[in-house]
């Protein structure tokens, strides 16, 4: 099963490699990993998307908690939560494709953020399925480059992860 694990950790050099090292050393899988400092610059927030049985995910959270620099860990997917991912996608958009491509971006509530003679760069936000759906909706021959950030997640309502 897919799990979204949220980690609050000290914003220190090497903290990321401890987490990445833990996953590779114990054979856990990482589908995506995002990390950036929080409003408190001394702390970073990390979102890890992983797949595994409940037992494996229980071990993952325990092992993460064991890392000295990890302050808190929560499995977001245990309860109501929101997830978002940002995609920047560069597509071929010559005279022939321009209009169609713009319309497709609008349908997915994407924005064209850069234009050249023969390309558009489209910014798209949503959960992973929406981004996948966009990629599937357009002609693969027109895709020049895709950049995705990986999932970030947050609990709904009053559910918070704070030090």
């Amino acid at each position: 099963m897919r799990h979204i694990i949220s980690v609050l950790l000290e914003n220190e050099a090497g903290a990321l490699s401890r987490v990445a090292g833990l996953f590779s050393a114990r054979g856990y899988n990482i589908e995506s990993l995002t990390v950036a400092p929080t409003e408190d610059k001394s702390m970073s927030r990390m979102t890890i998307v992983t797949r595994g049985s409940n037992d494996v995910v229980e071990q993952i959270t325990k092992q993460l908690n064991k890392l000295i620099e990890v302050v808190k860990v929560v499995d977001l997917s245990e309860a109501a939560h929101i997830e978002r991912e940002l995609m920047l996608i560069k597509v071929r958009a010559g005279a022939k494709e321009r209009e169609d491509m713009k319309r497709m971006a609008d349908i997915f509530r994407g924005r064209v953020i850069d234009v050249s003679d023969n390309t558009y760069t489209i910014e798209l936000t949503g959960d992973g399925h929406k981004l996948d759906a966009f990629i599937e909706a357009i002609d693969p021959a027109l895709i020049v480059e895709t950049v995705r950030t990986g999932t970030s997640g947050i609990g709904r309502g009053n559910r918070v992860l704070k030090a």
């Binding site: 050099a13 090497g14 090292g21 000295i68």
Partner: peptide, 14 residues
């Protein structure tokens, strides 16, 4: 050193 020993210490510091 910190990289080499990371998986075999409880914690390490530079």
């Amino acid at each position: 050193t910190v990289g080499i020993t990371r998986p075999c210490v409880k914690h390490n510091f530079l």
